[in-house]
């Protein structure tokens, strides 16, 4: 069943690419929409040429520094955003006054479309990686923050009381109960937050940079090189898939104690 599904999934991909190729390759079929046979290729690119661009990137090694920059930005944005979100989430989750005080502002900041901050970060941090990291951080922060905040609010009161009866001080409750509980919420939002870090990095590069996959796309677009634009998009998609797989692997390792993850509750009997 699985193998057959794989087969059909591959067939779907192949047929989409075949249609794309047939519809865009100049003079392969008589022109239907445009008189100029090259116009379809101008707007939609040609899959064969796109794949060739990608192969050339890897063959010449030209792409590695760009990928490396994008990866760095994504990782930094995720780590910084997650740590900030965890810290602020814990703090506001535990302090009623602080959360009541900050509530309207947190809501306002979350409602704001944060991509518009990109120009400001450009001015503050320059065209290097840090302006992209800052953009990614603003995106990651809120996801992690809301998850941790909710997580702290929903820590089981029985587990808390139990730890208290076992002699935990307030500090120890924070370290041994709130923190692990909140961390598990960070991991449950891992896929979304890593994705957001990636979005921040690429959008930042696209808006102004000298390196990165987003920069490549921007440059190609400037010279109407639609094949390279598509090549960049495909590469980003593949990159995102690899990143997502890595996250899934990390999740499996770190959340073994979670019932839904291990799924072996019946093993106990």
């Amino acid at each position: 069943m699985r193998r057959r599904l794989w087969f059909w999934q591959a067939m779907l991909l192949a047929s989409v690419f075949s249609f794309w190729h047939v519809a865009t390759h100049p003079e392969l079929i008589p022109p239907v929409v445009w008189d100029n046979p090259h116009r379809a290729a101008f707007f939609f690119g040609e899959p064969v040429k796109i794949v060739k661009v990608i192969i050339d990137w890897f063959a010449s090694g030209e792409i590695y520094p760009h990928l490396w920059v994008t990866l760095q930005e994504t990782a930094l944005a995720f780590v910084i955003g997650a740590v900030l979100g965890l810290a602020v989430g814990l703090w506001l989750g535990l302090s009623h006054f602080a959360s009541a005080l900050a509530d309207p502002y947190i809501k306002a900041m979350n409602a704001m479309p944060r991509v518009v901050l990109a120009p400001i970060f450009m001015v503050w941090f320059g065209l290097g990686i840090w302006s992209k990291v800052a953009l990614g951080v603003t995106l990651v922060f809120f996801i992690v923050f809301f998850n941790v905040y909710q997580g702290v609010k929903e820590v089981s009161p029985v587990v808390l009381n139990n730890a208290t009866m076992l002699g935990a001080t307030r500090r120890q409750l924070l370290r041994y109960v709130y923190l692990p509980s909140a961390t598990s919420w960070v991991f449950s939002s891992l896929h979304t937050s890593v994705g957001m870090a990636f979005v921040g990095a690429v959008v930042g590069e696209y808006l102004g940079s000298a390196r990165g996959v987003g920069y490549l796309i921007h440059m190609a677009e400037g010279s109407f090189d639609i094949n390279t634009v598509f090549a960049g998009i495909l590469l980003l998609t593949l990159f995102a898939l690899v990143l997502d797989q890595a996250v899934s692997m990390a999740e499996r390792r770190l959340l073994v104690w979670r019932p839904s993850q291990a799924g072996d509750a019946d093993r106990a009997l």
């Binding site: 089981s156 587990v159 009381n161 139990n162 730890a163 076992l166 002699g167 041994y176 109960v177």
Partner: peptide
């Protein structure tokens, strides 16, 4: 009450700690 041990009606173990780490928790504290 530091002289009392309390056994709760509902689940009170820390789900992120193994059985051994749960038993050892009080000594950790």
């Amino acid at each position: 009450n530091a002289r009392a041990g309390y056994m709760f009606q509902s689940e009170a173990l820390m789900p992120w700690r193994s059985a051994l780490d749960n038993v050892v928790a009080g000594l950790d504290f």
